[in-house]
Computed example of a mutant assay.
Amino acid sequence: MEYTSGAASWRKVLRRVVVALLPRRAAQHRRSVWTVGVPLIALAAGLLFTTTATTAGGTSLREDRRPELAQLIEDRRDRVEASEERAAALRDKVEDQTSALGGSDTGVTAQRERAAASRQAAGFTALTGPGISVELDDAPQYGDGTQPEDASNDDLVVHQGDVQAVVNALWAGGAEAMSIMNVRILATSAVRCVGNTLLLHGRVYSPPFKITAIGDPAALQRALAASEGVRSFKDAVVHYQLGYRETVEPTVTVPAYDGPSGLRSAKVPG
């Protein structure tokens, strides 16, 4: 190897040194990044695992909660039924005490007789006679789980307005008494739908919804045929295969109303 002196020689040496050191410095820089980064990543992962464990509380976060929800609904339903039974027992107790008091109080006796004369018209007694029943049902799914073309989910279920249209038509046709799902309907009854279920007097019913009315069958059928809401539902029956069936009943019984009879508010017409 030949060595030279002077500034040029030193510049060559410095270039060689710089070239030799650069890779080592880059490698050292990479090592320093990993030396700091790995502990930070491990710390973040530890915090994530700790937060997940605390949130889960010993349970699986991916566990299906639908069975738990179904059990909760069932428990609530049992509690409502138990409360209704207690309320019925209390009403019977009040009735017994009122009857006992009426035996010695002429004013109470007179009011009880006046109330008894209105019980049938108010729906507090069962009624039997000829009439008609109407059944409304959701559209069935095809065997492969599909639905009719160009149909939305709303097109395939019975809605609150459909049930109300039938009820209003039957009242307009001269119905003397009516029930939905064998539950007596009064002037104060409200028909509400939640999804594709029916909420009536605090209870939930699933389709098909059966509406029974006592009255002149021919007049009731004419009222149904004249109802715009019922005709609209029949059109949906044709297009989306919803269920609709009218049945003339030679003799049918509509049960008495057995729920609470107290009014929350009332207004006397002027």
Rank of each mutant, 00 (worst) to 15 (best):
E68D: 11
I41E: 09
R24H: 12
S104Q: 09
T59I: 05
L72F: 07
L61N: 02
D75W: 09
A53L: 13
G46K: 06
H29K: 04
A26E: 11
R24L: 15
L47I: 11
R25W: 07
E95H: 09
R91G: 01
L43I: 05
P67A: 05
A44F: 13
E63A: 15
D96S: 11
G58I: 07
V38N: 01
A45C: 06
G46A: 09
A82Q: 12
T59H: 14
E81L: 02
A45F: 07
A89S: 00
R76P: 09
F49Y: 03
L90V: 01
T52C: 03
H29F: 02
E68Y: 10
G103V: 08
V94D: 00
E74H: 03
A45T: 12
A26F: 10
V33M: 07
S32L: 14
A89N: 00
G103D: 12
R86P: 00
V38H: 01
H29G: 10
E74L: 03
G103P: 01
R30P: 01
L61W: 06
P39F: 14
L90F: 01
V38L: 08
L47E: 13
D96N: 07
Q71P: 00
E81T: 02
R31C: 00
R25I: 07
R86H: 11
L69I: 15
S83R: 10
A42Q: 04
R86F: 08
